[in-house]
Amino acid sequence: MAEDDKRIRDLRLMANTIRVDIVTTARDCAEGVHAGGSLSLAEVLSVLFFSELKVNPKDPKDPNRDRLVLSKGHANIGLSSAMAHRGFFSVDELKRFDQLGAPLSMHVDMHRMPGVEISSGSLGHGLPVAVGMALAGKLDKAPWRVFAIVSDGEIMEGSCWEAMMAAAHYKLNNLTMVMDRNRFCLDGPTETIMSLEPFEDKLRAFGWRVISVDGHDVVALLKAFADKAPGDDRPRVIVCNTVKGKGVSFLENTAGAHFTQLKPDKAAIALEELAAARAAIK
């Protein structure tokens, strides 16, 4: 048990570290970053990169690695932090975010980021790509699995529903869609801009096995990823109910958190809040 407790504590600490990186970059990067939808993913990224994904930073092209597609490619600051701490590249690279010649910038770029499977940024692309990967895995009877992090706003793109149909049709139970249900897109709440509810019923109706969790609860996330349902041939979606801008009080549940540059005074408040949250992690 003690070992489990330590593991969970470490995953929570890593989520906090990712948030600190996001806030620091939002302060130091003159162009600003996609803070809101990266802060909402901190626990998800921590659990994926430090527990669930079978990946090897020393051999990023290992043929038997699990594949992760960050379909919501604008959350690259979150992904970059998680991958840097996992050892795919130096944590110092975060300091050069968006700069000419740097590997990291607003959107995910496979040409510049070691360990990234595919470039993304334009929405509605990742799930179809993940479907192709999962088809190849099935064809080869491969042991590796495919994960696609998709945003709730992005699901408004028709291509996502095309891919959902295909995944169910081809019984791609080697595919997990990780849905960041933070309830905001750029212009406002998803339910105001283009209502998605009854969201989980829709996913279920498209032939997916739906697991719904608090996306900030590390224990719940670990349990959800561990839920393999042997014999069930449906693709799996883990709906992570999250808070946009999570961890920074003045960014939480605001559309403005989507893309932001933080003035030093604001960043200081955010970092204080995150330090307090870190101290409270038992």
């Binding site: 595919i118 799930l127 179809p128 192709g132």
Partner: peptide, 9 residues
């Protein structure tokens, strides 16, 4: 998109 995923695999 799936063609890209297949090619990557």
């Amino acid at each position: 998109g799936a063609a890209a995923g297949l090619a990557l695999s």
